[in-house]
Amino acid sequence: MYKISTSPHMNSQQTTQTIMRDVIVALTPAMLVSLFMFGIQALIVLATSVASCVFFEYFFARRLKLKNTTSDLSAVVTGVLLALNLPATMPIWMTVIGAFMAIVVAKMAFGGIGKNIFNPALVGRVFLFISFPVQMTTWITPRFMDFFNIDATTAATPLNILKHLGAGEQLTTGYWDLFIGNIGGSMGETSVLAILLGLFWLLKQKIITWHIPVFYLGSFAVCMFLSEIVTGAPRFDVLAHLLSGGLMLGAVFMATDYTTSPMTKKGKIIFAVGCGVLTYIIRVFGSYPEGVSFAILIMNAFVPLIDKYCHQYVYGTGRK
């Protein structure tokens, strides 16, 4: 018998799985850089994080009698993002705890994919950061292609240096090193170049629009720039700030997470500007050198409100 169904009788080829696959492709340069720079330890953190995220999702979906959604690859994405937000020296068991917080507490407890309010990977990261501040801020010096770089020296991150830069002093790390990622930091946030390659892919595949990254980085840069002009202090070096810490990774991969960002263009812009300004405030006035995770999580909480008030213009209702 012939099938009867409602229209449309065609659908786009894009599914949740293909989207997540594209995000993984976009994250590949950052993963590769982390492997090149931090060697086997990075591999261990990545593998642990991805495996535990997928395991937790599978296991708790069964326990909570939710549909098994591991095949949509979103847990893999969360695993990769969490790993890229951790230092390469992270002990295995701590990574597992981070994955638990991300998948079980931030995602499954809210009802699974699409229902969570906070970005799972960031919840995992911030939990680890608060619980294990020492391990979370121990950065090793990257050593390119030295795969068994396990006892490298501890490095201070550019942001830490920036934060405590006195008048007349200068950041010793060059912009180029910041750009390609030849610095200490979380595995995936060091190389701006790798992240921008990922951004290019996300835009090309129409996974995200440019609004959030551009308005996030733009509003942050404007704030820093104004401070630099007003005070003349070197610690407000705009370019160094843009290239350092988790800002690029956050603006491209974390703040653009579908579920935890607003629906409409207008909403996205408000959200992104909020992230930018909060990141600036925390970096400049807070006690932490870094503010990206907190800024995005705080703005995540505002998404329902933003969505409530930022609707699309409806055709035929008269533009005001």
Binding site: S5, H9, T16, I19, S74, G112, Y258, M263, T264, Q312
Partner: peptide, 29 residues
């Protein structure tokens, strides 16, 4: 349509991607 393409695809959870919002020619959500 051929038999292979006649079935409606299986649905999954909304991921709040906003694609439906961007697509709607009437500006609906």
């Amino acid at each position: 349509l051929s038999a292979e393409t006649a079935d409606k695809p299986e649905t999954s959870a909304c991921i709040r991607c906003g694609k439906c919002v961007d697509a709607c020619p009437m500006g609906l959500m």
